[in-house]
Design a protein around this nucleic acid. Sequence first.
RNA 1: UGGCCCAUGGUGUAACUGGCAACACGUCUGAUUUUGGUUCAGAAGAGUCUAGGUUCGAGCCCUAGUGGGCCAACCA
Length: 558
Amino acid sequence: MLQNKNIILSNYKNFIEQIIEEDLKKGYKRDELCFRFPPEPNGYLHIGHVKAITLNFELGKQYNAPVNLRFDDTNPVKENSHFVNEIKNNIKWLGYKWSKICYASDYFEQLYKWAHHLILNDKAYIDSQASEQIALQKGTPTNPGTNSPFRNRPQEESTRLFTEMRDGKHKEGSHVLRAKIKMDSQNMLMRDPVMYRILYKDHHRTGSNWCIYPMYDWAHGESDYIEKISHSLCTLEFKPHRDLYEWFLDQLPKKNKKKPKQREFARLNMSYTVMSKRKLSYLIENKIVSSWDDPRMPTISGMIKRGYPAQALINFVKKAGIAKRENTIDVSLLEFFVKEELNKTCPRVMVVTDAIKLIIINYPEGKHEMLEAINNPEDEHQGKREIVFSRHLYIEREDFRETANRKFFRLAIGKEVRLKNAYIIKAEKCIKNENGDVLEVHCTYDPKSKSGSNSEESQRKVKGTIHWVDINSSIDVKINEYDRLFLKEKPEENDDLLKSINKDSKKLIIGKSEKFSLSFTKGQKVQFQRKGYYIVDENQHGIISFNKTVGLRDGWKK
RNA sequence: UGGCCCAUGGUGUAACUGGCAACACGUCUGAUUUUGGUUCAGAAGAGUCUAGGUUCGAGCCCUAGUGGGCCAACCA
């Protein structure tokens, strides 16, 4: 069995693994390790999330530790159960199994009690100012903030107000619960951050039970603590939150539990791609793509429809590695892993995407014969199939030229080429319309050169081999040809996204395919020989449509 | 006028904690090939942002500078 040498990862440890190893040496027990993947169910997962998913779940495998899937659902305004389901399905599709499924909303009651505990300990207070006012008092990174006039509100009063807030006795925006930390901290997040706000909004799980909701910082570390997460991994922009994360943990009633450790790694960026939720939804709103699962989207759902194999995504993010520096990985690396996976597994099929007629003038009219074709030269278990050959065929328009230079290996007048799995032919003449477009090519074939026969002629080498289909037995197939969505390598840099959009990223064409395509069911990934990889998008009532996954490497220098 | 993080071939990640910079993608040769695919063999390409310092020795340590990122949502 050939092992993929790219997957044999060397035994170096990334900096997260090094931290874990270090902790293990310092007394952390292996069975105390626990990880989590904590998405907010407010949108679709994308390739960036695959990095976080793979990081956590592979760590779980490596250390035989549990990995929880936890929905960070503290903002009912944006979240819903549709996203929850989509996220679950995406993770399953990647092949990972979570140990527990959790929701921050499961902890609302506990969080609420702990919040009272903070108030009692003079670590939190109810602020009754407008949000604009609070923002103003925050100061700036270079100027300290100022204390709220409510900062020294008596504990009893804060306790009463907080209880009333929870009981629905106050309007949205009238009060918030704030942590009492330090208004002149260098870290903006430590300037008395908001812990709770009033929101009269139904929650996808708790319904109308609550009208106050905890903020991220107050909920996240505490959720980690409750689930006994040992290492809480997130992306770099959360680095400044670490101080707060630890401060909150320190305020909890003492228990004999270890504090989870937040550590940050760089998010994944990809060339010719945007990743932010805002920009992705912009593409949808402006009808540049059809939806979150449009095959051109970098979402997992999009990539599924595009035909990217799960293993390719995982190999890709593993190879991209875990580090702390800003990066933009070339999409070609992703495409490499996609092609690598597909090459091993896909059956080959001959499909002509831009057809011209080829007439074999010395092949009898009305006759046809069956030829044999290997389904996948990389995997003999996929067997063989039969294809129809006759006098009237289709070939690819770009595979014929009247005259050819030395670099053109394909069909030209007076030149020979092999028809894949069939005979060697020689072009004699072509017929054109008044515009000069080639309508049909007339050629002769060499009957002794038939593929697979043992004659010397069948072994004859010619420079080129082209694909073809028999006109009479061919079927029409719909093909969505996809190209990259952006022309610019770093579309994120341009605020005007529209300017960098590739207007031709999707083209619908009708191709001519051998009958083999009829046997493919939805989701089947195939290679159109000499063209690229495609996935069956639909196959109903004999109407079959494909999405292009990625093209084959093209070594031809024109 | 602030704080924190980062800086290695075109891209991404390494360099066993100081010992003549490696791997993958990409690029370029050549071989094989009934896919200009795959496979195989090989090559070019960085002297590690800059300037100092410590050291027999620095990509790794120290100092300063430069460049980039993040931080002022009742978002996560």
